[in-house]
Every structure is written in C-alpha cells, then in structure tokens.
Design a binder for these strands. Structure first.
Lengths: 163, 163
DNA sequence: GCTGAAATTCTGGAGTG
DNA sequence: CACTCCAGAATTTCAGC
C-alpha cells in the first residue's frame, strides 16, 4: 500500500478495536505525539483507509428484535445494480450490504421490529429496488452474534443465550 | 426496553452512524447538555446497549486483500459450539461471527492476505475448532461492500469498482 | 439534568531534524 | 516532509445544586 507505513497500520488496527480511542491514547501506544496521530488519521481518512466510525449497538435496545441476513440471487449483475444497492444502503435499518461471489450475489444484513416488517422488506426488495432482476431471496434470522465488526460481544464463555 | 427512553435511542442511532461524535455534537442534536449525554452513554454501555466502538477500515490497507464469508453447516448445534465460536471470535482476522437459522447455522466474516491463507483458515475450522461437528463449509468472496455496520461506504453513485 | 470550574484533550502554527 | 513543541480553543470531567 503506497504511503502507508507500520505506524499507520497500527493506528488502523487500534481504531478498529476501539473507535473512540483518543489521540493521546493512540500516541502513547504507538509512540507518536497526538498531533502526529491526528495528521495520520486525517491522511488515512482522505486516502479512504478509514471509511467511518460506528458504535456496536445491541439492536434489541432499538426495538429491532429480528436481525436478518437476506441473500439475493440476481438475473444479471451489472452497473445499474450498484445504484440500487446504494439506495438500499441508505435505509436506516440496513446494517450491511455486500456484493459477493456464489449462487447469491448480494448479501444484506438488516434489522426489523418483527417478522411482518421483515416480510415487507423482502417484498420491497423486488417491488421497489431490484425489480425483475431479483430472481429469488434466501432469508436467515440471526440467533446469536459473537463478534461484530471486529468487536467481541461475548465477554465470557459462560453459556448465555441472549445477546 | 426498561430504562431506555427516546433520547437514549437517539444517542444509540447517532453513535451507530458516527461513533466518534463528540458529546457536544450529540448534545446539540438531541437537546441535552454534554454532561447528560455522557451520563446516558455510560448507562447505555453498562446496560450492554453499546458493545463497543469501531472504525470501519478498508481491509486492503492492512494487506487483507481477500474478504470472505464462510458459512458452516454443523452436525449438531449445542452449547459446546458456543465455546468454539467464542474461540474463533478471538482471531484477529475474523470480523464477524454469527449463529443463524437455515441450512448453514454459522456465518463467519474474515479477512485474509491471500487465497492460500483463506484455504488454511477453512481447514483449521474443522481441524482446530469445530472438529467432526463441521459437516461442510460454503465460502464466498466479497467483491464490493456498500454498507458496513451502519456506515455507507460509497459516497456517490458514480460507478466505481474499488472499495 | 443543569451549571460552572478544573482537568484533559484537541488543534493549528512555528520551528527542528 | 514528517515530527515535535507549545499556546489557545474545545471538550470532557466532576463538583454541587
């Protein structure tokens, strides 16, 4: 990677684990002054190495009791799909949108209040967004999340069933 | 949700979109003093509503050029699987670990330097972690990420192929 | 949940190697 | 050119209410 050295990588790794780490903290860990850390973070943001920051939130606290994974098989995957996926990405309850290899080309992670809302969402996927291009969708419901975006959610290994 | 009001929900929603928002910013948006925001955030962290904070990092800048989704079908899914999934969650290159409904009960998102590393990982899934309980695995490679952990990655809808 | 003061952190410019 | 130092600004923290 051009223009990226080990210190930059350390910053990226640290921020992935703790996105709210302060410049001073990072400086101590990495061995740079807070001002340098700031310069580097700005550089990393401009380069697109850092896309943004996010808190890992338990969806049930936002009354999102159904967390689903929706895989979509497309008839054709072309540039116009990009725009549709961009539009889907704008939805607040959608957490992740990916294009991938395999039988199902699209994977969407989204949260819902209840199952009817999930059903409505899947209906809208073809009705509003992907149209006839959507061949079929496969829906799974998340039972447990152990790790999310690099953050381990279970602190102990005791058997608990709730997240 | 007990002990959670609308202001708390707003805080959760804001922090999910921008995990590095300052207390002052949040206070302005929500209509509370920075001190109150801080108190509420602490409460939310203690309640487990906020699990952590993370920067959304482009994996290619950390020499993780292969981003994979690995689905695993288990023979039996019982409590001992929890511990194995916990162990898998500890791995640095693993970004997400979920238990879900459907034919494949486990979904793992992980990043790799190259395909041989991915292959090695899948081999280790049965050799080291899940043992004979792993019936089979289905691997997909991520081509494009449009949204990750609530953060939209494509800023415009111009057709770009790189993330 | 507010206020105000103290501590900490952040920021931007000048200077150094 | 990236880093450090330093002073002013902003934020965070903590007390009392």
């Amino acid at each position: 990677m051009v223009g990226i050295d080990e210190k930059d990588e350390e910053i990226l790794r640290e921020l992935r684990k703790n996105g709210r780490a302060t410049l001073t903290e990072l400086g101590r860990k990495i061995g740079l002054s807070p001002a340098s850390i700031k310069n580097r973070i700005e550089k990393l943001e401009n380069l697109g190495a850092i896309k943004g920051y996010s808190a890992i939130v338990d969806p049930t606290f936002l009354n999102e009791f159904v967390q689903a994974i929706i895989e979509v098989e497309l008839l054709v995957d072309n540039e116009t799909v990009d725009k549709m996926l961009y539009n889907i990405s704008q939805l607040d309850n959608v957490v992740g949108v990916y294009r991938k290899t395999g039988e199902f080309q699209i994977l969407i992670r989204a949260n819902f209040k209840d199952v009817p809302q999930l059903k409505e969402f899947v209906r809208n996927l073809s009705a509003k967004y992907l149209g006839k291009n959507m061949k079929r969708a496969k829906v799974s419901v998340i039972i447990d999340a152990f790790k999310e975006n690099g953050v381990v959610l279970y602190k102990e290994r005791r058997s608990r069933r709730r997240r």
